[in-house]
């Protein structure tokens, strides 16, 4: 091809490409299905959490707060390693409407209490004896952490660990902005 033919082709690609981009442009409102899922940007799946302290909490009860939902188990090394950082976050940010909830995976309340007492962690711990929360949140490995905003939307997820406190704070910061 001669040079002019290449130039014409280049112009056609640009014009045709922008035309295709216009024809397939995102339609407002069509991009974000409102069904609950673990996708970032979607409403967090609703779950009822039987707490270690005895009461039952639902995510709907926590609407208006920033929720850090941390799936963990006492036998999981990275989970244990990030517990102190999560406890510090709970202490420091509780006054700004942040709540950390550790959802334990299928362990008995006695052994969880013994472990928590041994490390002096006191943020709310939920039980998941049937693995229902695990299934709803597609927890395929531990630890898994979801950050849920004040409107109940999943805004970030961290798979694996241990999370450093700085990492949690970096993920939390955008959710605390007014």
């Amino acid at each position: 091809m001669n040079r002019n033919a290449w130039r014409v082709l280049s112009a056609l690609i640009l014009a045709g490409g922008l035309g295709w981009a216009y024809a397939t442009r995102p339609q407002s409102g069509a991009a974000a299905p409102a069904v609950a899922s673990t996708r970032v940007g979607a409403p967090a799946p609703e779950i009822a959490l039987p707490m270690l302290s005895g009461e039952t909490r639902t995510l709907a009860d926590l609407r208006g707060q920033v929720v850090i939902l941390n799936f963990w188990a006492t036998w999981c090394g990275p989970c244990r390693a990030e517990m102190p950082a999560l406890a510090e976050i709970q202490t420091q940010y509780a006054s700004r409407g942040v709540i950390v909830i550790g959802v334990n995976q299928r362990e008995d309340a006695g052994s969880i209490r013994r472990y928590l007492d041994s490390i002096g962690v006191d943020f709310p711990i939920a039980l998941d004896p049937t693995g229902e929360s695990n299934r709803q949140y597609r927890v395929l490995g531990l630890p898994t952490t979801y950050l849920i905003d004040r409107q109940g939307l999943i805004r970030d997820a961290v798979f694996g660990g241990p999370m450093a406190r700085a990492l949690i704070e970096s993920k939390l910061a955008p959710l605390l902005e007014p």
């Binding site: 290449w6 112009a11 490409g17």
Partner: peptide, 13 residues
């Protein structure tokens, strides 16, 4: 689209 168009231009050159 811009990358493809520039690449076509570059191929001519």
């Amino acid at each position: 689209a811009i990358s493809a168009a520039l690449a076509a231009w570059g191929l001519g050159a």
